[in-house]
Design a protein around this nucleic acid. Structure first.
Length: 422
DNA sequence: TCTGGGGTCCTAGGACCC
DNA sequence: TCTGGGGTCCTAGGACCC
């Protein structure tokens, strides 16, 4: 029996999270902004109908937002992350094979069980998530992940499907594909779309019927896989056990351009503290540390500047102070006086398991005290909140830190911000 | 004035080896 | 004048995803 995939996709996820604790916002237009209150990254259906587009800069949309009385939120990842975990846990309780694909999506291998149809199984999933967490989801079901993704967009859009859509047969599948622009297909971005359009491929059905060898040669391997997936031939498998991270990035845009080395040092220390914490949480160590600095891509009055440096650490580590020391050294050699930087960041690569290290004969092993110190720091910050204990180098006032003027409370992850029932 | 952040995979080209 | 062939590994950049 062939596998059937379901994609569970939370509807307008960030907006749904905000509405969960502000039910008065249901049926009202709502948007959520990216970090630094930069762009619109989530929209309620009402906001979409007012012509607010994904990724639009906030400052350019303010007038339109005001005109339609749109409720605007800064992003609140503590809240979204926590609710995402609850949705995923609910799915994992229902089905054995769940792949958490993103903060708001999961693929599920659907069993062909008894007398329950796939549609009924989809309905059951939707209803359960709604009852247990309160986040509305759409469910798309197909023979491959790519088809399940497509089915989910149908489920989301057309009210008649009750939030669940399953291709009945190949005929219906092709009928749907004929109505989908090729760029809406999972894996086809704007570049590939332009290239395909130039060769007369406009719809998902056109792509599905393209010649294999031509696609492989001119569009590459990933696109060739997508074509097979559209035909119902699975090429992308379900990954129920997450593979271990290959890199960890931490970076932010600044509230306003930063020119002082002292401020950059604080920010880089801060990002390293965040990334090193993630590293330890996953039981990993990093062999390389990259630091990068950039000016705004959008400024035309100064030459664009984007510099990065990588340092191979003398031995893999997850120690915050060791990484901060290396990072500040790199930063100092990267820094150019007078340049108005708008963003800084760090990346950890060469990740491996902390408990499977090759010792270096010529270097002292990382001290026990150091790892015990990090464990204590993590425990305290886990218990009392991020940054309860932090390195002085990451600053106290942080004048450079990002803008978040419209953030809702961390309703579910912070005692002081629990919602109050009157 | 103000334009996000965090990931993965693929590919081409260079360095190097025998 | 004429300078091979086959392989691996690494890296940077491109493309895509949410």
């Amino acid at each position: 029996m062939s596998t059937v995939f379901a994609l569970v996709d939370c509807n307008n996820f960030y907006v749904s999270c905000e509405r969960l604790f502000r039910p008065a916002l249901n049926l009202r237009p709502v948007v959520v902004l990216s970090n630094n209150d930069g762009c619109i990254i989530a929209r309620s259906n009402e906001a979409k109908s007012h012509g607010l587009v994904m990724g639009a800069p906030y400052f350019k949309q303010k007038a339109l937002l005001r005109r339609h009385g749109v409720q605007v939120f800064s992003s609140n990842y503590a809240l979204y992350g926590d609710l995402s975990n609850r949705v995923m846990a609910t799915l994992q309780q229902m089905e054995p094979d769940v792949e958490i694909y993103s903060i708001d999506e999961a693929f599920i291998r659907l069993p062909t069980q008894g007398d329950r149809t796939f549609f009924q199984q989809g309905r059951r999933i939707k209803k359960t998530v709604d009852q247990c967490v309160g986040i509305p989801v759409s469910v798309g079901i197909g023979q491959t992940k790519t088809l399940a993704k497509l089915a989910a967009t149908v489920a989301k859009k057309e009210n008649c499907h009750k939030g669940v859509f399953h291709f009945k047969d190949d005929g219906q599948r092709d009928e749907v594909l004929a109505g989908v622009p090729v760029q809406k297909v999972w894996g086809i971005g704007s570049r590939s779309c332009k290239k395909l359009n130039r060769h007369g491929v406009y719809t998902a059905l056109d792509l599905q019927q393209s010649d294999n060898r031509w696609i492989r040669k001119f569009m590459g391997l990933s696109c060739a896989r997508t074509v097979l997936e559209l035909r119902g031939q699975p090429c992308i498998s379900l990954e129920a056990t997450p593979s271990s991270r290959k890199s960890i990035v931490s970076s932010r845009s600044f509230r306003q351009p930063v020119t002082e080395l002292a401020d950059l040092k604080e920010s880089v220390s801060c990002y390293i503290s965040i990334a090193a914490g993630k590293l330890r949480k996953q039981g990993l160590v990093a062999a390389n540390l990259h630091v990068f600095l950039a000016t705004s891509r959008f400024r035309t009055d100064i030459p664009h500047c984007s510099d990065s440096r990588m340092i191979a650490l003398s031995q893999p580590t997850s120690s915050t102070p060791l990484l901060i020391k290396a990072g500040i050294q790199e930063l100092t050699s990267l820094y150019k006086k007078g340049v108005p930087y708008n963003k800084a960041g760090i990346m950890l690569t060469g990740l491996s398991r902390a408990n499977r290290q090759q010792r270096n004969l010529f270097l002292p092993a990382e001290s026990r005290e150091d790892s015990q110190l990090m464990a204590a720091l993590d425990q305290i910050n886990e218990r009392w909140g991020r940054d309860t204990l932090r390195y002085g180098s990451s600053g106290l006032t942080r004048a450079w830190s990002m803008k978040q003027s419209r953030k809702s409370p961390a309703y579910t992850t912070c005692w002081a911000e629990l919602p109050v029932v009157h």
